[in-house]
């Protein structure tokens, strides 16, 4: 007889909440913004407003995440609340993400408005490194291994884009290659999300209504 590994049990419970692919869709759409925003900028010629133009899409996916969890995931896998220790861990994770994203934003503002060409050139690598850090921490703390790959994809997108753009490859001749490289990375993440969501819906039907809460 084996002893009950409660830590493994807890990890399995919480990592299973990422099996519906909804977070993947959200992350993929955020990443897709880096591919689309420069193209919108070509049309409206404003860095500021082109960033805002993608906001409704992000908002729509955020709403899909929220309502998807409530109306797709919850009726299939039920509702579970974390222990106070787990909640503390999650809030630490959230604060780390806020800190890293703030660093990203401050770095971006400095690079765009007062950093000069050198700093502006370094910024995509700096941002990529921060994104990799966030995803690695999330992957480790949430036990979701594919987040390591997402982090890697999102650090490779600006790096490969810059590299190919500096060599004047025709396919990445505009916007440092970001529309292509971020487009590919985001597509991989979004397709993974869609596949996971379809598989989740097929494999996890809503159980028959026999619960104590049945009408």
């Amino acid at each position: 007889m084996q002893t009950i590994d409660l830590k493994a049990l807890e990890r399995r419970i919480w990592s299973s909440s990422f099996e519906d692919g909804l977070w993947d869709l959200f992350i993929g759409t955020m990443a897709l913004g880096f591919a689309i925003i420069p193209l919108i900028n070509d049309v409206i010629h404003s860095d500021f407003w082109s960033s805002f133009a993608w906001l409704p899409v992000n908002l729509a996916v955020l709403l899909f995440l929220f309502f998807g969890k409530r109306h797709i995931t919850m009726p299939r896998v039920g509702l579970v609340r974390p222990t106070p220790q787990r909640r503390r861990k999650l809030s630490v994770l959230a604060w780390i993400n806020v800190a890293v994203l703030s660093l990203c934003a401050v770095g971006g503002a400095v690079a765009a408005f007062g950093g000069g060409e050198t700093l502006f050139g370094i910024y995509p690598y700096f941002m990529g490194l921060l994104v990799l850090t966030i995803f690695s921490i999330c992957a480790y703390m949430l036990s979701v291994q594919r987040f390591y790959i997402y982090g890697l994809l999102l650090v490779l997108a600006p790096t490969v884009g810059e590299f190919l753009w500096s060599r004047r490859w025709p396919i990445v001749s505009v916007h440092h290659g970001f529309p292509v490289t971020f487009g590919v990375a985001a597509s991989i993440i979004i397709i993974t999300g869609v596949v996971l969501l379809i598989r989740f819906i097929q494999a996890t039907p809503i159980p028959p209504v026999e619960s104590p809460d049945a009408p």
């Binding site: 419970i13 039920g78 509702l79 579970v80 609340r81 974390p82 787990r86 159980p207 619960s211």
Partner: peptide, 18 residues
């Protein structure tokens, strides 16, 4: 008991699935 030990609370559907 093992499932309920590692969470604060859970509903019937969660326990049935697990």
């Amino acid at each position: 008991l093992a499932y309920l030990y590692v969470v604060e609370s859970a509903d019937f559907i969660f326990l049935i699935r697990q």
